[in-house]
Design a protein around this nucleic acid. Structure first.
Length: 454
RNA sequence: GCGGUUGUAGCUCAGUUGGUUAGAGUAGGCGUUUGUGGUGCGCUUGGUCGUGGGUUCGAGUCCCAUCAUCCGCCCCA
């Protein structure tokens, strides 16, 4: 007796049936078309990378979330009993030298460093591939998910930032999904802490301030104090962060705040420039919100950062990105500034589904199902199907002689819009009965008329 | 890594104070007279109740453990 294993998906992973796939394809196609319209060139990189490529790029937490692959063969061959008592951190390099990619940006940096002589810079690259994170799954968070990245590397012009914003606007306007784009600059965050004379507290400051909308000023203040901020510093921060106003009013506010601070001024002028460039993109840009609370996690960002969120639904961010100045340096290629944007397609789909934003998308591959009652009809059906396919009409033949009811039920269930019936009379008269499954109407057509009417 | 929730048919869920052969809806199959579906009607196939242990004469129900799930925290798309 065979032992039956319960079928299930690995944690945090999903199957996509035909119906799901048609929704996904819809979104993928739109994103891909816009990537192309902006001149981005598609590349792909392997699912697995050597571990040293991935580690140290995402901070300590990120390193833990990288899926490690056991060495093939006897993966214990390099280990001794002692190694096991030293903890997993020291054991990993001895049993694993590869991992699954955690994002698309770091593999891209490796790619650029390796192909620097063949690439025409500035290089516009797009990449749509799955990434893996050993995170704890929850709402909108999966262990396997696709990222859709567009990056421009090899130029520090702020036009690039503005181009990515235009790309953002055009994609979401095509998807019909209302989104806000929140922008900030790491330089502004750094400017704030340096005005206060605590530049060494940049990281805890960013982490805390990023949570302001979520947990409120009092909790943030407590967190800042426990990280070494003084009461007087908190007071200046409070007036800054409780300020409500338009982009211009915020810029004005910071302009005064940064009167003696170079980095802050620089960050601020970058924001201004990007907003000015963006005004030329032909979209209503009132959804671009300058918010100097935004911090973002990934440690490699150095300049402008941004995050996209759905307007009509509280959800995590569905787009993220920013400028990185030194990502390729670790791979021996310094002075290569780049800026990127990443569309979180899984979350975009989740949000669109919840908001019911998907248009009627056809789920069936075939436009017509051919059915018949006997062997003569069967061979005619095969012939007609192949003729239809030559005219680019997706067709399939019901595979067996059965009651006609069965084929109608089959077509209905599968969402095939037309059924062609080939019976005794049709064979005699050399035509076909075409039934429109939507309204039940039927007409008798010659084969050439059939091709025309589909 | 931490906190909570839920695991009964393919799916959504009932199942009383522990008590005989565990139910419903839906999906699936067959039929409803000769070539007509999406919507009627009839019949019917599906479950060692997540897994392992314990208490008990008796456990889907109580206890313990474990695994999985979903939702928060951290972090992120």
């Amino acid at each position: 007796m065979k032992i039956i294993q319960k079928p299930n998906n690995a944690r945090g992973t999903r199957d996509f049936g035909p119906k799901e796939m048609s929704l996904r394809t819809h979104v993928f196609t739109i994103i891909k078309n816009h990537f192309e319209a902006f001149g981005f060139q598609a590349i792909e990189t392997p699912a697995m990378e050597n571990l040293h490529i991935l580690t140290g790029k995402y901070g300590e937490e990120g390193d833990q979330l990288v899926f490690k692959i056991l060495n093939s063969g006897d993966y214990l061959s390099n280990t001794e009993a002692v190694d096991f008592s030293l903890g997993s951190k020291l054991l990993i390099p001895k049993i694993s030298e590869k991992g699954l990619r955690y994002d698309l940006t770091v593999p891209f940096a490796r790619f650029v460093a390796m192909n620097r002589n063949d690439i025409a810079f500035p290089f516009r690259r797009s990449q749509i591939q799955p990434v893996w994170r050993a995170d704890r799954p929850q709402k909108g968070r999966y262990r396997e998910f696709y990222q859709c990245d567009a990056d421009i590397i090899g130029s520090d012009s702020l036009i690039n930032e503005a181009e990515l914003i235009a790309l953002f606007q055009s994609i979401f306007s095509s998807l019909n999904l209302r989104t806000n784009l929140i922008i900030n600059s790491r330089k502004i965050l750094f400017g704030i802490v340096s005005v206060l004379g605590v530049s060494d507290l940049f990281v805890p400051f960013s982490v805390a301030i990023d949570k302001l909308d979520k947990i409120g000023w009092d909790s943030v203040a407590l967190e800042l104090i426990s990280n070494g901020f003084s009461i007087s510093q908190l007071e200046s921060l409070r007036s800054l962060f409780q300020f409500q106003g338009s982009n211009n009013e915020k810029i004005q506010l910071l302009d005064d705040f940064f009167s003696d601070n170079e980095v802050g001024q620089q960050g601020l002028s970058e924001i201004k420039t990007v907003l000015d460039f963006s005004a030329l993109n032909g979209f209503d840009n009132s959804n671009i919100l300058f918010d100097f609370k935004l911090a973002r996690g990934l440690s490699y960002y150095t300049g402008l950062i941004y995050e996209g969120k759905a307007c009509d639904l509280p959800f995590g961010s569905i787009v993220g990105g920013g400028r990185y100045d030194n990502l390729t340096e670790a791979f021996g290629l310094p002075n290569m500034s780049g800026v990127g944007i990443s569309f979180g397609i899984e979350r975009i789909i989740d949000v669109m589904r919840e908001l019911n934003l998907f248009p009627d998308i056809k789920t069936s591959a075939s436009k017509i199902l051919l059915t018949y009652f006997d062997l003569t009809g069967q061979s005619i059906a095969l012939k007609i199907a192949n003729e239809l396919r030559k005219s680019n009409i997706a067709s399939e033949v019901y595979p067996e002689i059965a009651k006609i009811k069965k084929s109608f039920e089959f077509a209905d269930k599968k969402g095939i819009p037309f059924v062609g019936v080939i019976g005794e009379q049709e064979i005699k008269d050399d035509n076909i009965t075409l039934k429109d499954m939507k309204n039940g109407e039927q007409k008798l057509l010659s084969i050439s008329d059939l091709i025309k009417s589909l």
